[in-house]
Simulated scan of single mutants.
Amino acid sequence: MAGMATHVITGAGSGIGAAVARRLHERGDDLVLHARDAGRAKELAAAFPGARTLVGDLSEPDRLSWAFSHQTLPDRVDSLLHIAGVVDLGPVGELTPKTWHHQLDVNLIAPAELTRQLLPQLRAAHGHVVFVNSGAGLNAHAEWSAYAASKHGLKALADALREEEHGNGVRVTSVYPGRTASPMQAKIHHQEGKPYDPSRWIDPESVATAILTSLDLPRDAEINDLTVRPGR
């Protein structure tokens, strides 16, 4: 991606998203950072000087088009990086529709809608859509049904989008990180009732490296699926 590329990033506030945003910011690329509200947007703009923000609540995907209609969308998008996500564990016998809806809305329907909103710009730039999925997008374990369903769905979204947009020069990559040291991981451990030791899990910087590798790959090749596992 030579020259000044423009990246739209969700989840830039922490974990993998923050690591990716920092790396792209350091190399001088243009960032458009998604935020759920104006307060978060202000924090992100302060953390990444020169970055633009895009405000909309991913937990209300039906309202995103309305929110975006009151803002200026970037006229060029070289990459759309879907990194935001939510997780709530529990057995099927206890998960309520509200919990299901929240994870499906944030992890699956919002990425679909954000992609739809920015597809014209992605096509024009022959851009790249990266979905940060999860090991749970390939295997569902006890207590993980709703989250894993949202991530299995995200794989389906990516696979269909890749086939649809191939002829338009849009590349699509799914990244499946194993457990990564992040605030989300701390929450998962709390829900599992286990002590949290970040040194046991993948450093977000390592996942960021994998994501940048897929972005920077020469145009003759495309990484479709990339699984990143803890190495220790």
Rank of each mutant, 00 (worst) to 15 (best):
residue 107 N to R: 11
residue 107 N to L: 08
residue 107 N to A: 11
residue 108 L to P: 02
residue 108 L to N: 00
residue 109 I to R: 15
residue 111 P to M: 05
residue 111 P to A: 08
residue 112 A to D: 02
residue 114 L to A: 10
residue 114 L to K: 12
residue 116 R to C: 09
residue 117 Q to Y: 01
residue 118 L to I: 05
residue 118 L to N: 04
residue 119 L to Q: 08
residue 119 L to N: 02
residue 122 L to P: 00
residue 122 L to E: 05
residue 123 R to Y: 04
residue 123 R to F: 06
residue 123 R to H: 06
residue 124 A to S: 07
residue 124 A to P: 00
residue 125 A to Q: 12
residue 125 A to C: 13
residue 125 A to E: 11
residue 126 H to D: 06
residue 127 G to A: 13
residue 127 G to W: 10
residue 128 H to K: 05
residue 130 V to G: 02
residue 130 V to F: 07
residue 130 V to A: 08
residue 131 F to S: 11
residue 133 N to E: 01
residue 133 N to H: 00
residue 133 N to A: 01
residue 134 S to K: 00
residue 136 A to V: 01
residue 137 G to Q: 09
residue 138 L to V: 07
residue 138 L to R: 15
residue 139 N to C: 09
residue 139 N to A: 14
residue 139 N to T: 13
residue 140 A to N: 04
residue 142 A to W: 06
residue 142 A to Q: 14
residue 144 W to F: 12
residue 144 W to P: 00
residue 144 W to N: 11
residue 144 W to A: 07
residue 145 S to W: 03
residue 146 A to S: 12
residue 146 A to Q: 01
residue 147 Y to I: 10
residue 147 Y to P: 03
residue 148 A to G: 13
residue 150 S to K: 03
residue 151 K to G: 02
residue 152 H to S: 02
residue 153 G to A: 05
residue 154 L to V: 06
residue 154 L to S: 08
residue 155 K to T: 13
residue 156 A to F: 06
residue 157 L to K: 00
residue 160 A to P: 02
residue 160 A to G: 14
residue 160 A to F: 09
residue 162 R to M: 03
residue 164 E to S: 08
residue 165 E to L: 14
residue 167 G to Y: 07
residue 167 G to C: 11
residue 168 N to W: 12
residue 169 G to P: 04
residue 171 R to L: 11
residue 171 R to E: 05
residue 171 R to G: 09
residue 172 V to A: 06
residue 172 V to F: 04
residue 173 T to I: 12
residue 173 T to M: 08
residue 173 T to S: 13
residue 176 Y to R: 03
residue 177 P to E: 06
residue 179 R to L: 15
residue 179 R to I: 11
residue 180 T to F: 04
residue 180 T to I: 07
residue 183 P to R: 05
residue 184 M to W: 06
residue 186 A to E: 15
residue 186 A to V: 09
residue 187 K to F: 12
residue 188 I to H: 12
residue 188 I to F: 11
residue 189 H to K: 12
residue 189 H to D: 15
residue 190 H to Y: 12
residue 191 Q to V: 08
residue 192 E to G: 01
residue 192 E to H: 08
residue 193 G to Y: 13
residue 195 P to T: 15
residue 196 Y to E: 04
residue 197 D to I: 11
residue 197 D to T: 14
residue 198 P to S: 09
residue 198 P to Y: 03
residue 199 S to Y: 01
residue 200 R to D: 10
residue 203 D to P: 05
residue 204 P to E: 00
residue 206 S to M: 09
residue 207 V to W: 04
residue 207 V to K: 06
residue 207 V to R: 10
residue 207 V to Y: 11
residue 208 A to T: 03
residue 209 T to R: 15
residue 211 I to A: 05
residue 211 I to Y: 01
residue 213 T to A: 14
residue 214 S to I: 05
residue 214 S to V: 14
residue 216 D to L: 14
residue 216 D to F: 08
residue 216 D to P: 05
residue 219 R to W: 12
